[in-house]
Simulated assay, not measured.
Amino acid sequence: MLRSAPTDRRGMLCAVGLFVALRAVCTAVLAAFAAGRDTSLLALLGRSDAIWYARIVTRGYDHAIPVGPDGTLLPTNLAFFPLFPGIVALVDPVLPGGAGTAGVVVAWLCGIGAAAGIYAVGTHVRDRRTGVLLAGLWAVLPHSLVLSMGYTEPLFTGLVAWSLWALLRRHWVAAGALCLLAGLTRPTAAALVVAVGLAALVAVVRREDGWRPWVAGALAPLGLLGYVAWVGHRLGSADGYFRVQNDAWRMSYDAGGTTLATTRDLLTRESPLALYVTAAVVLVALGLLVLLATDRVPWPLVVFAGVVVALSFFGAGYYQAKARLLLPAFPLLLPVAAGLAAARRTTLVVVLAVLTALSAGYGVYLAIAWPYSP
């Protein structure tokens, strides 16, 4: 592991300020388009998955998987992990506007925490300038619209970033505890469990840091496994959670055949813009993973990013969601951020301006024109 550079308040404030400013620009553009269509900005930021989370806050979890008239299993809110709606439920009584508004507010606050954590990781691995740019790049990714919505990506990415930072600093118990919380947020936490678990195993084998790696390794999977077990108990079936994913939501994994077949179809038939952007994001992510693996970065970052890319690539359902699933894999941006850190200020301004314009425009498309979850 590399020696840490000091993570100072000034640099972190710069990173958070850049993140907030870029997201504010993108949200302002969306607000302008929403006003032109007599649509509420909050309604756009609280659509799709955000509605599912708001309903969990107000109605609780389903007691069974809904069944359609033809006997097929229908989507259920048991697929959505509990930490985010739990936090929203705490905030909801304090804010006006209902659970949907509270979800957007919580997402924004979590995005700020995530930007700070991303900066901390970037500073540890490289330097302060790289850390600031890493947070800025994350703010203007193609699907960064969801960072301003009532979605779990900001909370999950924040927990991932701070868990990885704690891991790199050898704060084992904190890394394991944050990984546990990430496991209560999204199933993609499996990638973080692998990274923390492997790092703990290496430390145990090398007899480093005493009992702490043991605790980290034990804590890391508890959140993910705990929710899977709870869903199984609620449905009265040990494989209940997998029935929710496979049978109710039609989400599974294959050897990448679905991803390759869908990508091939994009070259031979007209398809929506979102699918082309998704294919491009997945391809770029694979290239960035190769760059990251050949760069001098701590291996847990490569492991985490690699597993997230694998989960996205091998997923057999909801092709359009693959790019969004890659949002928490911010270590992939490290080579880009490090390269920009060495560039002139004019170059930085131009690159961030172009990326912000593209992100804002695509965010409008996803929020208004695209009928499905961003």
Rank of each mutant, 00 (worst) to 15 (best):
R296E: 14
A280M: 13
G317V: 06
F314S: 06
P298R: 08
L333Y: 02
A337Q: 02
L332M: 09
K322S: 12
V284F: 12
R344I: 04
V351D: 03
A360R: 05
L286F: 15
R345E: 10
S359C: 11
V351Y: 05
L333G: 02
A357I: 07
S359K: 08
G287L: 14
P331V: 08
T294P: 02
L288H: 07
A305F: 02
W299P: 03
A357F: 08
L325E: 09
A321R: 01
A293Y: 09
A280G: 15
P298T: 13
L311P: 00
A316H: 00
A337E: 05
L325N: 12
Y318V: 13
V308H: 03
Y318M: 06
A321W: 03
A274H: 01
P335H: 13
R344E: 14
V303H: 02
V297S: 04
A337D: 08
A353D: 02
L289W: 02
W299R: 10
V350K: 03
F330G: 04
T346H: 06
S359E: 08
A310E: 03
L358P: 00
T346M: 05
S359D: 10
L292A: 14
V281G: 00
F304E: 08
V349C: 04
G306I: 14
P300A: 12
F313R: 03
V350G: 01
T347D: 10
L292Q: 07
F304I: 01
A285Y: 13
L311Y: 14
L325P: 10
A342T: 04
A310V: 11
G306Y: 12
L327Q: 05
V308W: 03
Y276N: 01
L288I: 11
L283V: 12
A316F: 07
A323S: 15
V351A: 08
V303M: 04
Q320K: 01
G306R: 07
V284M: 13
L358R: 02
L286Y: 15
S359V: 08
Y319Q: 10
T278D: 11
L327D: 09
R324Y: 05
V281L: 09
G287S: 12
G287T: 07
L288K: 05
A353I: 00
F330R: 02
L292D: 03
V282R: 07
V350C: 01
T356W: 07
V303F: 08
T356K: 13
S312K: 05
V284Q: 06
R296G: 03
L326T: 09
A338P: 00
L333F: 10
V302A: 13
A341R: 00
R345I: 07
V290K: 15
L358G: 02
L301F: 08
L326Q: 09
V297L: 06
V354T: 04
